[in-house]
Amino acid sequence: MYKRVLLKISGEALAAGRGFGIDAIFVSRVASEIVQLANNGSQVAVVVGGGNFFRGVAEQAIHMDRVAADHMGMLSTVINAIAMQDAIEKLGIQCRVMSAIEMHEVAEPYIRRRAIRHLEKGRVVIFGAGTGNPYFSTDTAAALRAMEIRADVLLKATSVEGIFSADPKKDPDATMFQTITYMDIIKMGLRVMDTSAVSLCNDNNMPMVIFSMREEGNIVRVVSGEKLGTLVTS
């Protein structure tokens, strides 16, 4: 259904419940789904978070300068990007890591036209280091990169099935939305992603699907058009 997609994966997801570090088995599972998409003809870009190592707004950074803490968080995303790249290339698909912070020995610098060219050649592209700027989350980076590469859809893989009216872990009466608008997310104060990312997607008519990645195969199902999770539109 979607020719070019941008997949946002949180760092916490890569830890697979461990809280810290990388679960190699889980990373391999996600990599196999990405490779399956590439083999099916989809162009796949990925933005990874870094919360499994360090987050600039976490308690561990409470006494740190925000800019320094955010830079540490950006470097954490590059660690995850390299791990994902290794897992994908072991399955036979070429993959490029592009970093918003220049580190030539381990990643290419992010250049929009080069990223699009990689996608056109069938390579998977992983964007690391967020936007390269402090005070912006990887959610905002995912929204920005999705629009820069002209993705058909932004996919956000989470630990829950979609967007709920309340936290389903705390409120048993919470109901899941099949579809919702970005403005409704803002009005209802739903903590789906950063407000800046929501506004960016809304202003540029970028559709987004939020779905659970707990079940194996869900990434492929969403891209193929199966109705999973919550569809967010302008």
Rank of each mutant, 00 (worst) to 15 (best):
V106W: 08
V106N: 07
V106I: 15
V106M: 11
A107I: 11
A107Y: 05
A107V: 15
E108C: 13
E108F: 15
P109F: 08
P109K: 10
Y110L: 08
Y110H: 03
Y110G: 06
Y110W: 11
Y110Q: 04
I111V: 15
I111T: 10
R112C: 13
R112K: 11
R112V: 10
R113V: 04
R114H: 10
A115Y: 07
I116G: 05
I116W: 02
I116P: 06
I116N: 06
I116C: 15
R117M: 14
R117Q: 14
R117V: 08
H118S: 10
H118L: 09
L119G: 13
L119M: 11
E120T: 12
K121D: 08
K121A: 12
K121W: 04
G122D: 02
G122L: 08
G122N: 04
R123H: 15
V124K: 01
V125A: 05
V125L: 03
I126P: 00
G128R: 05
A129K: 00
T131F: 04
T131N: 01
G132N: 09
G132D: 04
G132P: 06
G132Y: 02
N133S: 13
N133R: 10
N133K: 10
P134W: 05
P134M: 05
Y135E: 03
Y135A: 04
Y135Q: 08
Y135H: 12
Y135G: 03
F136H: 14
S137P: 07
T138C: 01
T138L: 01
T138M: 00
T138R: 01
D139W: 13
T140M: 14
A141V: 06
A142L: 00
A142S: 07
A143S: 12
L144W: 03
R145M: 01
R145P: 00
R145G: 00
R145T: 02
A146K: 03
A146C: 10
A146N: 06
A146W: 02
A146S: 15
A146T: 14
M147F: 03
M147G: 15
E148A: 12
I149E: 06
I149Y: 02
I149G: 12
I149C: 13
R150E: 13
A151R: 02
A151S: 14
A151K: 01
D152A: 00
D152E: 02
V153A: 08
V153Q: 02
V153E: 01
V153W: 01
L154P: 00
L154N: 03
L155W: 04
K156C: 09
A157D: 04
A157S: 12
A157V: 13
S159H: 08
S159C: 12
S159D: 15
S159T: 14
S159F: 03
V160W: 08
V160C: 08
E161A: 14
E161I: 13
E161T: 10
G162W: 02
G162I: 06
I163L: 11
F164R: 05
S165P: 01
S165I: 10
A166N: 09
A166P: 01
A166M: 05
A166L: 05
A166T: 06
D167I: 13
P168R: 11
P168Y: 13
P168S: 10
P168E: 05
K169L: 14
K169D: 07
